[in-house]
Nucleic acid binder design. Structure first.
Lengths: 231, 231
DNA sequence: CTGCCAAAATTGGTCTGACAACTATGAGGC
DNA sequence: GCCTCATAGTTGTCAGACCAATTTTGGCAG
């Protein structure tokens, strides 16, 4: 009998969530665009404002929208009614950081392997160009944080699975905002630098096993340096 | 100037979120227990009920609590104020399922490798016992769904990183509820059966590379069968 | 016409009160 | 002891009001 949860419970909010998701999916809203104001949605869906607000809160918690007081509610990521959401809770602090690193390693290794299998010619071209930029900046300044990130992002994209990019980007963001690593050593992970070319070559050679192991090499150095940094 | 978001914006709700998280962290609430009613929290924190409700909606969206009309709001997972949340959006449908599988592969492989490095004697014992159960049931009935799950869960736990268990469990749940795979073939992934013992032996031998490759073997079969199933 | 500034309109944030829908509890009848 | 049912407690929803931040508008000075 417990399967009857849909009888009456939460039909308005649930319906409103669906309606808003459908609206987003049907409209031409792009990330960064503004949703209709709460009062308008309220009138259009014939529900109370608090219901609309709770729906927005829900999407907000899921990182789909962002509200700016006095301005409006803005779309951060496109969703459809069939989007599935997996909230992930990780402890903060040293343990949380180390746990995140291990999860990240699993994802990054798999993304590299998939990239090796699936990278198209244009993917390879993009990765190569970012590798060159990264190497140039590294030779010039001794480090290349943003360029390194750009390189890895292009690898994630080459995996053909957008979930990797989404997850890894969010993990990077969360780590950065939560642990405030603004002042990293200038030579952070510098030793991993030569492996990036090897990773690229493994991907270009369509060798997933080599891509896995090269990624592991890079991450081993990154993790060592992080361990040093947090002592 | 736009970066001044913390000036006054969202201080009540944000403070209430923090307060509720602190309350949960400080109290002895266990998953399944009931939170104080909204009116009580409202009075205790000196905020309006709508604010409390929006806070609860937030935690609800993140899968931390569940509300039952007429009954109360129940804790699903323990959190502390320092918990970090990573919402993840995955498309439904074929593509989403395949994308999830790839992410799962990355996580599962890494969890196995970590288990090989870190499994304690008691971890090994637990994995072994579940392996034996699984093998027994498999011989008897030809399949062993729940026992297989139990085996893998014990491997995740042996990784020493609870995030793997959390993520993989949630992914399994989501897949099951969203794609409704109630009627799987009775011999689903039966071919992966012999590899489980090999995976256990790799972990017992503390050989992370072997654990990686055995896990890949298991998942390759699972993925083949899923591909067959969704055609 | 251009540029600056104050007022007005817009929009999200919060509070309050009320009622509906549902659940859990316990008293009373059998 | 068991069942029924009234009652209190809890979440869900709506309505209206006001506050706070932002954006837009319109007027005024140059």
């Amino acid at each position: 009998m417990e399967a009857e949860w849909g009888s009456q419970t939460r039909r308005v909010t649930s319906g409103a969530m669906r309606a808003v998701a459908e609206y987003i999916g049907r409209s031409d809203l792009q990330p960064g665009d503004c949703l209709p104001p709460e009062r308008e949605l309220m009138a259009e869906l014939s529900v109370g404002r608090s219901t609309i607000r709770e729906v927005i809160r829900h999407w907000q918690a899921l990182g789909v929208v962002e509200s700016r007081r006095g301005s409006g509610t803005y779309l951060l990521r496109r969703i459809s009614p069939e989007t599935m959401h997996l909230p992930l809770a990780v402890d903060s602090g040293r343990n949380g950081l180390l746990q995140m690193l291990e999860v990240r390693r699993g994802l990054e290794v798999e993304a590299s392997a998939l990239a090796a299998v699936r990278a198209s010619a244009s993917d390879l071209e993009r990765i190569a160009s970012r590798l060159l930029i990264m190497e140039a900046v590294h030779r010039e300044k001794g480090c290349a944080g943003p360029e390194d990130l750009a390189f890895h992002l292009s690898v994630y994209d080459a995996s053909g699975n957008p979930v990797f990019n989404q997850l890894l980007s969010q993990m990077r963001e969360s780590v950065q905002t939560l642990f405030g690593m603004s002042r990293v050593r200038v030579d952070f992970a510098a030793r991993s630098f030569p492996f990036h070319r090897e990773l690229f070559e493994a991907i270009a050679a369509k060798d997933p096993d080599a891509a896995r192991s090269k990624t592991l090499s890079i991450l081993a150095i990154v993790e060592e340096d992080i361990q040093d940094m947090i002592r």
